[in-house]
Design a protein around this nucleic acid. Structure first.
Lengths: 248, 248
DNA sequence: CGGGCCTTTGAGATACGTCAAATTGGGTGG
DNA sequence: CCACCCAATTTGACGTATCTCAAAGGCCCG
């Protein structure tokens, strides 16, 4: 079960797939070569834990490819996913030595890691990085707050529709497709992972997926392959304004 | 119904009550005087809306005193509070022209506002501000994620206990008391506001408050004045590790 | 072809929401 | 100073969305 061989990973920042979106997006050539000195790649298989909550973390990292989740767990095992980390997202917190969350790979994941100390020092002297990191953190804060509305006030059906529309939207924007015409994508999450993200049980997730399928909001080929014939319909089911642009 | 008269507001940053915690915390004298040129104070009465979601915002601001809430509302009126803004917290987002949330004063509120354009320009050239803002944003992101666990996975009783322990903890740290001995504080929120924060109805909030009182976890003097005889007991009811330090 | 997940579906239990009415208590005006 | 008023809160009865427990498929991979 090999994922992309290391040889295909750009050792060279200039042709990195997340070059223009990651924390290094605004760096110039000189700054990039400083980063190249402190960076190294790591890969993880699906299901593998990248960091445990409470563990010492002496690196920060960008997701280069694949999907990872951030989650919190209570003593009795209840767990809540608090973040979905996609390519270009940043993992780890400058100025903190331990992880506050479990970080788990849900697909094959490639990460571009930076040793923490040198990276922190570089933040101090490199406004390009500090500003990009601030911007990314503000975006994540907005996303977390949007998710609070989903968790606190939406019904199970709306929660499922919300999750599907987020994944569909992201997929469409990666593939540069418009919102017209059917959207097709693969669910990167198991029913249980969806439940942990939505604050539901996996049975409720399954039932609501079946209901959305029965009502023609989505079509399923197998368990993971999803077709959305009408994106606006999905948005309505999510309880969102249908005019919320696709290109966010 | 006058709140603190303007005359009592420090026009002078150097004796501002939030000087050491706000976005300006790390500024030196020169930077402070630049800020003083673009700042002005505004006050709001309880219940007054400071900004509406979607409104143009041409300032950013620090809460100097009082409490404000951030909330999102769905078309049918369901609302979810996504942030509790306390003294020193920062409102507004550099690089965005409209507010994503409703901002409402729940008590008398004094805000130190900065005109947006000059402030954004200053961030660009002042690492002290950019770094402090990054740090504060990361803290807010952690708080939002902790709240996602509360919203997604906790029972009504645990939710109430979680909210009370957060307020009690903050109050204790302001008054520099330890966690030993009874904690006493005033609830700055109505039952409805608590419900909007917790993703519950106000009736459920009221019932669970009564239950916690009946079980001796809290005592109530009037509707808003709360005594917590044993903080660890409250933490247990919240479903948190009781060893979570008070001094976070 | 068989074993082990992941998923679906069912039946019954329950926590929380909804609707409605009673009670409290803090502020106000007489 | 007291009675009154009104918003906030409490309490009750009932409905229901979601959870829990249980069993029966599918599907991938060896």
């Amino acid at each position: 079960m090999l994922n992309e061989p290391m040889s295909s990973l750009s050792q060279n920042c200039s042709d990195c797939p997340i070059r223009h979106r990651a924390v290094c997006a605004r760096c110039d050539g000189d700054e990039l070569s400083q980063l190249e000195e402190m960076k190294y790649y790591r890969t993880f298989e699906p299901g593998r834990t990248i960091v445990w909550s409470g563990d010492r973390m002496d690196f920060v990292a960008s997701v280069v490819s694949g999907i990872a989740t951030l989650s919190q767990t209570m003593e009795d095992g209840r767990t809540q996913m608090v973040g979905l980390m996609l390519p270009s997202d940043f993992i780890g917190r400058p100025g903190r030595t331990t992880s506050a969350y479990n970080v788990v790979a849900t697909t094959d994941v490639v990460m571009c890691c930076f040793r923490k100390k040198p990276f922190e020092a570089m933040i101090e002297r490199t406004p390009h990085i500090a500003h990009r990191l601030l911007e990314m953190t503000l975006d994540e804060l907005d996303a977390a707050r949007e998710w609070m509305l989903v968790l606190g006030r939406k019904t199970a059906r709306e929660k499922i529709a919300s999750l599907l529309s987020i994944i569909a939207r992201r997929d469409a924007s990666l593939q540069l497709r418009g919102t017209q015409g059917p959207l097709v994508f693969d669910l990167p999450l198991t029913r249980e992972a969806m439940a942990d993200y939505l604050g539901l049980t996996l049975e409720t997730v399954s039932r609501q997926m079946s209901a959305l399928k029965r009502d023609g909001v989505i079509e399923l080929q197998g368990k993971r392959h999803v077709t959305v014939p009408d994106f606006n319909r999905l948005m309505e089911e999510a309880g969102d304004d249908a005019d919320g642009g696709l290109l966010v």
